Simulated assay, not measured.
Amino acid sequence: MSVNITFAPLSRLLTAVCAATLLAPASSIPAQALEAKWCKDAHIRFFVGGAQGDAFATIVYNGAKQAEADLGPKVDYLFSSWNVEVMTQQLREAVAVKPDGIAMMGHPGDAAIMPLAEQAAKAGIKMIYQNVPIPKVVAAFGGGYIGARQDEQGRALGAEAIKRAGLTAGDRAIVFGSFENENRGARERSTVAVLKEAGLEVIQISDPPTGEWASDPNLAIPVITAALVNNPDVKAVGYSGGQMLGNVPTYMQAAGKQPKEIFNFGFDTSPQVVEAFKGGWVQLAADQQPFQQGYLPILNLCQQIVLGLAPINVDTGAGFVTPENYHVVAKLAEQGLR
């Protein structure tokens, strides 16, 4: 089907638009947008992702709770301990309940979420995804994405680590990640790719798919200690999340290392990560603003449900936290906001 469009002179169009704007009565603005708690009649299910109290999930939860307080929807919060099988089952149950909207973590990936997204679309449930993008699902059934761009952020972190640590061809590094997960693992796979492109030898260690290292980072102590003992010439270690990055002092001390002896880098900030920067244990973190990943999905679902607006896509990646600037985010991190 072809569509013929006739363009009017710009001056005439501007005159018409301005006149329509000036003459439009205030009543033409949706009343809900002018009211406090304008989303109070909406029911939303929100996936926090981690376990209650874990460093990253707490900030996501705080953002979501702030949006709930500001906008007024009824929100059910789901904690999954970063276990993709649990998330998938919880999504199945959420679709069956038929809320007005669902804010879903993308960790299970396109293949696992696709059939459930189809069911949600048929039921008229508005969807938005956070933290891990699932482009195939969004292309098929719609929905927005709030979070960092996994591939881009992973490559940027690898390049920054090389520069700041002075890594050169032949150096060895360890990188932790969910490498087998098609969607979630894209970030760390990209970091590894950049390091290898620079000629580094990279030892990849896979995070457990059940998410226990994120829920309790102390469980990774034996693995990290063994890796460092078996590879005494390692110059840098990359971590897949703020839970492990914040636990770096424990890992390094267990392996008999001193502050700054190894260049430790990874993703996210938290009170623990800030303390690790202060102590000289952590040298670089990529910030993805999890508070935004809590607040914006609920805001946009309300906009879709109540106002009929479209899904939004927001890259929450905010650059790097370093020994030179960590104090800028320190207070926000201590408050559970960043």
Rank of each mutant, 00 (worst) to 15 (best):
L34F: 07
E35S: 08
K37H: 14
K37R: 14
W38C: 10
K40G: 03
H43V: 10
H43C: 03
F47Y: 14
V48C: 09
G49T: 03
G50Q: 07
Q52W: 11
G53R: 09
G53T: 10
G53L: 04
D54P: 01
D54F: 00
A55N: 15
F56M: 05
F56I: 02
A57S: 15
A57D: 15
A57K: 14
A57Y: 14
T58L: 09
I59G: 14
I59F: 15
I59P: 10
I59L: 13
Y61T: 08
N62G: 10
G63S: 13
A64M: 11
A67S: 15
A69F: 07
D70F: 00
D70I: 01
L71Y: 15
L71V: 05
G72D: 12
P73R: 12
V75Q: 11
V75F: 12
D76F: 06
D76H: 12
D76K: 14
Y77P: 05
Y77C: 02
Y77A: 05
Y77E: 09
S81Q: 12
W82L: 13
W82P: 08
W82R: 13
N83L: 00
V84L: 11
V84M: 08
V84I: 13
E85G: 09
E85T: 08
V86P: 09
V86F: 06
T88G: 07
T88S: 11
T88E: 11
Q89G: 10
Q89Y: 03
Q90Y: 05
Q90V: 01
L91V: 05
L91Y: 06
E93S: 12
A94V: 00
V95Q: 09
A96I: 01
A96L: 08
A96F: 03
V97C: 09
V97N: 11
K98C: 01
K98P: 00
K98H: 07
D100P: 02
G101A: 04
G101Y: 04
A103G: 07
A103I: 02
A103D: 02
M104Q: 14
M104H: 14
M105W: 09
G106R: 08
H107C: 00
H107D: 06
H107M: 01
H107A: 06
H107Q: 10
P108E: 03
G109N: 04
A111T: 08
A111N: 07
A112Q: 06
A112G: 01
A112P: 01
I113M: 04
M114H: 11
M114E: 07
M114V: 04
P115W: 02
P115C: 01
L116Q: 12
A117I: 01
A117N: 10
A120T: 07
A120G: 03
A120Y: 04
A123G: 03
A123W: 09
G124W: 03
I125R: 12
K126Y: 03
K126V: 00
M127P: 05
M127Q: 15
I128E: 14
I128F: 13
Q130N: 10
N131K: 05
I134T: 11
I134P: 01
I134Y: 07
I134E: 06
P135H: 14
P135R: 14
V137C: 04
V137K: 12
V137S: 06
V138Q: 15
V138W: 05
A139G: 04
A139W: 05
F141T: 11
F141E: 13
G142I: 00
G143W: 08
G143L: 04
G144P: 01
G144F: 02
G144T: 06
